[in-house]
């Protein structure tokens, strides 16, 4: 498996999830993927599939309805992975700090490696954050990092931590 790891570091694919931000950072991520800043120089492709991604770009303070999805997406990304919190409200809650339906930053839920400042964060800072994330990705091992707040039970299968039930499945009886 070490064979594949070297290739993953050369072309880190990103997964983007909006956990309740104002769209400002999301369009800046799109602008960073666009021609002027061109993140694809670093081998980055925006994928929609968590199972093929290495870097998890999250925007927004975690709202109550998106937290299960956030943890579930996080647990589905294979190790080693890096989480980048883009923007003020993702890092610390920003202007939404203390509002009744938010959770003051995503590091209440999942371990965050890089915090990108700015409201809204600019493509320049997103590139900086990604470069830092790449450095961290190289030093990371394949040990499983648990999210802090879980919705399901932790299971071990044959001395190994299983990722299967870490995030509870989404209830379909919401309405």
């Amino acid at each position: 498996m070490k064979f594949f790891t070297t290739f993953r570091k050369k072309s880190p694919w990103i997964l983007h999830y909006n956990a309740g931000s104002c769209n400002g950072c999301d369009i800046e991520i799109l602008a960073a993927l666009g021609p002027k800043f061109d993140l694809e120089r670093f081998g980055v492709i925006n994928t929609g599939n968590p199972k093929q991604s290495d870097i998890f770009l999250v925007t927004g303070p975690v709202t109550y309805r998106s937290r299960e999805r956030l943890v579930e997406l996080y647990t589905q990304i294979p190790e080693p992975k890096v989480v980048v919190a883009v923007g003020s409200c993702t890092s610390t809650g920003g202007v939404f700090r203390g509002m009744y339906n938010t959770e003051d930053g995503i590091d209440r839920y999942i371990p965050v490696d890089v915090y990108v400042a700015g409201c809204a964060s600019s493509p320049q800072l997103i590139i900086d954050g990604l470069v830092t994330a790449l450095e961290i990705l190289e030093t990371k091992s394949k040990a499983i990092e648990k999210p802090f707040k879980l919705f399901g039970a932790i299971e071990t299968i044959g001395n190994k931590l299983s990722r299967l039930n870490m995030a509870r499945k989404v209830d379909n009886d919401e309405n």
Partner: peptide, 15 residues
Amino acid sequence: AQKGLYLDKDSLPHP
């Protein structure tokens, strides 16, 4: 009209 457009089970009721 159903409940649950914005709020979840454990969030603040009728804020």
